[in-house]
Amino acid sequence: MTKLSIDDVEHIARLSRLELTQAEKEKFAKQLSNVIGYVEELNEVKTNDVEVMSQVTGLNNVTEIDLLEAGNISYNHIEKNAPEFRDGSFVVPGIFQD
């Protein structure tokens, strides 16, 4: 049965863009190992000839003309929810160091 180590938890927290305290790492390592261990019973099932299924509707290539529908959402509305908004753009810290 798979057990997640503290290192594993640090790695997936990093992938998830989350920061954990030491106590949280210990708690999650235990809890996540518990549920991952449980779902591993799937290994019993033979699936060599079974196709992967990602959805149930059977619908394929549903397309729609990509038209802007005027009047739905204004800059004003977007600005109200935005942490920082200036001249029609979201404001973010730099990505590259100068």
């Binding site: 998830s16 779902v39 079974v50 992967v52």
Partner: peptide, 24 residues
């Protein structure tokens, strides 16, 4: 975190792909 774990390279086939097959 569990999602990023089961989707990680090396684990994808064992968890996510397997789950999609058994879903079928």
């Amino acid at each position: 975190m569990l999602g990023n774990y089961v989707l990680s390279s090396g684990y994808y086939d064992a968890y996510y792909k397997k789950a999609q097959q058994v879903r079928n």
